[in-house]
Simulated assay, not measured.
Amino acid sequence: MQEIQIRADAAGVRCHALLPSAGVGARAGTAQPKQYQPLAGRLLVEHTLAAFAGVARIASVNVVVAAGDETLRRPGAYWNVIEKGGATRADSVFNGLTHLLDVGDVRPGDWILVHDAARCLVSPAQIDALIDACLQDAVGGLLALPLPDTLKLSVDGRATQTIARGDKWLAQTPQMFRAGALHEALARHAQSGFAGITDEASAIEAQGLKPLLVPGSAQNFKVTYPEDFALAEAVLLQRGQSGSAS
């Protein structure tokens, strides 16, 4: 791992980004893993990485890729590549976090911001807002959106019930937790293949803790389906023209 300048706050507590990027994105319909799809002049994941590079409080940016994946190894890159990607997102996060703690690049008391590589529209302002909200919180939290649409319960493809949406949120990333606490929470589910763990917050919730919900942005969506690429590119090009990334 190349040497990256580490920045810390006055108390010596640091914030690190961890991007699981070992998936193939089967639903995206691309010839290569979706994170490597060209988008507005860069690879999709490079837009994601650039957002974290724009946040002064991020001490290091770390990308977990599949073994043998050299795509992001660049001379002088501001990110670290960790070839310990697993079969699932939770595997990759756990393996990457284990590595960072084992080599000492991250300390248990440091903050880890886990972010989906395919959420390429996250902005430095949104990342800063999450850090501001969570830095003094006892648990940590995640970007999320209050559910805007009517929610239906389905049975055999037919709506059977309308569910109250007032307390429903759509989870986004980054999700920000103490490195040691998150590693311990994930380790409890490693033997089961992380069954039921759909994101970092779910692992923390399984510990009986309540992560903070920090309002995010509708633009911070996860590129998943073929039509998502055109929308993401349009937003990126508009931002480039206006100079805005809020």
Rank of each mutant, 00 (worst) to 15 (best):
K168Q: 13
L182D: 05
L113I: 09
T48W: 00
Y78D: 08
G166A: 13
A26K: 15
F221G: 05
G196T: 01
N95K: 06
G193F: 12
P20V: 15
A164E: 05
A230M: 03
I127Y: 01
A22V: 05
L43N: 07
P148V: 11
A245P: 01
V45P: 04
V103R: 04
Y36D: 08
A245F: 11
A90S: 15
G85C: 05
A125K: 11
W169A: 01
S192F: 02
F177P: 14
A185R: 15
A118L: 04
E83V: 08
Q207H: 13
V155M: 00
S246R: 06
A195P: 01
L19K: 10
S246I: 01
G109A: 08
V55E: 00
I112R: 06
L130S: 08
R188D: 15
D167G: 05
T88W: 02
G86M: 01
A50Q: 11
T173M: 13
D132Y: 00
S217A: 14
G216H: 13
G85D: 07
Q219R: 11
Q136I: 00
A201N: 09
T48I: 01
L186F: 11
Q161K: 00
T48F: 00
W169S: 03
H99I: 01
D132N: 01
W79I: 08
D132W: 00
A10I: 14
M1L: 05
